[in-house]
């Protein structure tokens, strides 16, 4: 929350309380509130925190007989396959690069679409197009891949059908790694445009009409209204979405890359991310230690990135910082 609130209500309530008491006093005083947190507490305990014990797997040569704490400790041995590959740096760079592109481009387009849609007057048009833009979210990447293959397939693909009809040379997309860098972003946007748009649309609907009316009286045109009212008010939403996305910056869009690129090694140079690399490595012989160590590596780098970004934001304007 932001500073003003803390200074007003919060301070008043807190000063009325007895000074500095322990956990038990708080528990006694707010026991209903604690009770209301029980489901969430249980959920995160079971779903997130207790499984974290398993991080220890990353340092063992796992065998089924001895389990988690019985398997021999091997130090950093499990991380070896990551740096041995000689690709760790390029994989990390690809993972982060794609995610940054996804986050920025998708968010900008989502904001743009939300603003434009909110400004149109035909209710029916809005309703239909919103649903259409949302629809790809329900199409899994497995299906998307079937479509992608049928568009770019050299012999009978949709694209080459068009090209040859206009007397042009057919294009061998699957032999051109470079183009996939852009295609992956397009696929991602295609699928996620509608989903993010909803959050922004909801925020825009919440902006008081008085603001726009006042601006109109002052002679602001549409662009100016968007520029000086809508966008600044969307900014906090953008930042929080960004921060949540950043928390997962080391986890790629596995499904997208795995389904669309599949076993086509020719494209790996530009499309391989950590998740697909790890998955491929472990697909035939899944190894608990190696799998966990890769996850831990992602967590640590991700943690480092998020705390850095958070510190930078905090220095600029504390209200926007995540924690």
């Amino acid at each position: 929350m932001s500073r003003p609130e803390r200074m007003q209500g919060g301070a008043a309530v807190q000063s009325a309380l007895p000074r500095k008491k322990g956990f038990l006093d708080e528990l006694k005083r707010n026991k209903i509130l604690f009770v209301m947190l029980i489901p969430t507490f249980v959920y995160f305990l079971l779903n997130s925190y207790m499984p974290m014990v398993g991080i220890y797997f990353a340092f063992t040569r796992y065998n089924f007989r001895d389990g988690l704490f019985g398997s021999p400790f091997v130090g950093l041995e499990n991380f070896k396959f990551l740096y041995k590959s000689g690709k760790l740096f390029s994989l990390t760079a690809n993972t982060i690069g794609y995610n940054v592109a996804f986050i920025l481009i998708a968010n900008i387009l989502q904001v743009a679409m939300a603003i434009i849609l909110s400004r149109l007057s035909s209710k029916l048009f809005k309703r239909i197009t919103q649903s259409i833009i949302f629809l790809p979210y329900f199409v899994s990447y497995v299906i998307l891949n079937v479509i992608v293959y049928n568009i770019f397939n050299y012999e009978v693909g949709f694209l080459n059908g068009l090209l040859t009809r206009f007397g042009m040379e057919p294009y061998n997309a699957y032999g051109e790694p470079g183009i996939w860098r852009y295609l992956m972003v397009i696929f991602y946007v295609w699928k996620n445009l509608g989903y993010g748009m909803v959050v922004y649309l909801a925020t825009i609907t919440g902006i008081s009409n008085d603001l726009y009316e006042a601006a109109e009286i002052d002679g602001a045109n549409v662009i100016q209204q968007i520029r000086y009212i809508t966008i600044p008010l969307l900014f906090p939403t953008f930042v929080i979405l960004l921060m949540f996305a950043l928390g997962r910056i080391m986890r790629g869009q596995f499904d997208l890359f795995y389904q669309v690129i599949g076993n086509n090694g020719v494209l790996y140079e530009v499309t391989d991310i950590l998740d697909t690399f790890v998955f491929r490595t472990l697909k035939q012989d899944f190894d608990v230690g190696m799998s966990t160590s890769a996850g831990l590596f992602q967590s640590i780098v991700g943690f480092f990135i998020i705390t850095t970004v958070n510190a930078l934001i905090k220095r600029k304007d504390e209200a926007y910082a995540l924690f």
Partner: peptide
Amino acid sequence: QAERAAVMNVQTQ
């Protein structure tokens, strides 16, 4: 194991 994983990855690519 680590070398094998790396080798198999190169092969796949």
